[in-house]
């Protein structure tokens, strides 16, 4: 399910003297069935951008098209239900949004809300909980008895249970330990293999390299680049400084090596690429 932003402007308090413009003339598309990463420094407009994908925010000008749904300033609230069945958003620290008495009830909430009967909602919830790796022993527990990592998964299952075609994840790995982060990236790839369109916001360039098909770079409310990770991360170092973006760790290390006198032929994006490049370089002695 493709997502297209066409000349989208967004301001808070539009039409008032307090109007505060956040997005400027954003035109970008996120192809169906692919993983698109949104990166950019804090305050660059990433979260505002993705909140348009399920109509939490509406463009002040321009339009957002998700599959066959068009979102504009004039879209009525009651039409949004149709969009929200297509698009599931997992916010930052989604564990803060858990509310039900049991894990299973919490995850069943969205399918019930979208009109599924109890049996179907429970089946959908169970599938989602298995997908995110929440053990059956926990399903009847209160979500508030769980660890932070488990709560995160339950919250994600709550979004996946209504089987959205588009999944938007806002900083899904923040605060997770290395194992939790690896499992989360695995889940992103699994969602892609199920044919879903995935959009995720991240500050971790290594995560971007690991799962993204393309990267959208935001700066001061504008889209300033859209490329594959391989192309994007080979840009000039000064550009990354200006955008206040990190390189992947392998790229950072390679830059330090260059400064110390060992120049690699091209900037590596992963540990394996870096190790191979160094071994080749040293082996030529």
């Amino acid at each position: 399910m493709a997502i297209t932003f066409e000349k989208v402007n967004f301001s808070y308090g539009a039409g008032t003297t307090l109007a505060h413009a956040i997005l400027h003339d954003v035109t970008v598309n996120m192809p169906s069935g692919q993983v698109t990463a949104i990166v950019g420094q804090t305050g660059s407009g990433k979260s505002t951008l993705v909140q348009h994908i399920n109509g939490l925010l509406k463009p002040t000008q321009g339009r957002v098209v998700v599959d066959d749904f068009e979102l504009t300033a004039r879209t009525k609230e009651k039409q949004l239900m149709q969009l929200r069945q297509k698009v599931g958003i997992v916010f930052q620290f989604p564990e803060n949004q858990l509310f039900a008495n049991s894990v299973l009830e919490d995850v069943m909430y969205a399918p019930l809300n979208f009109g599924a009967d109890k049996v179907a909602a429970q089946a959908a919830a169970e599938t989602a909980l298995r997908r995110v790796g929440v053990a059956e022993a926990l399903w009847q527990k209160s979500p508030f008895e769980l660890s932070g990592g488990q709560m995160r998964r339950v919250a994600m299952a709550g979004t996946l249970a209504s089987d959205p075609s588009v999944v938007v994840l806002d900083e899904p790995a923040a605060g997770l330990d290395p194992k939790g982060q690896a499992e989360l990236l695995q889940l992103v790839l699994e969602l892609k293999s199920l044919g879903k369109t995935v959009v995720f916001i991240s500050h971790h360039m290594d995560h971007v390299v690991a799962v993204a098909d393309q990267v959208v770079v935001m700066h001061d409310g504008r889209v300033v680049a859209k490329d594959t990770p391989a192309v994007l991360f080979n840009r000039d170092l000064d550009w990354f400084k200006k955008m206040k973006l990190d390189l992947p760790k392998a790229g950072q290390f390679a830059e330090k090596l260059t400064a110390a006198g060992m120049k690699l032929p091209e900037r590596p994006l992963t540990l394996t690429q870096l190790a191979t490049a160094i071994n080749t370089e040293v082996g030529h002695e």
Partner: peptide, 16 residues
């Protein structure tokens, strides 16, 4: 124990 080394440590392990 579910932990990684710092980046440099993981890289050093791949050096030949």
């Amino acid at each position: 124990n579910g932990l990684a080394l710092p980046f440099a440590g993981e890289l050093a392990a791949q050096m030949q």
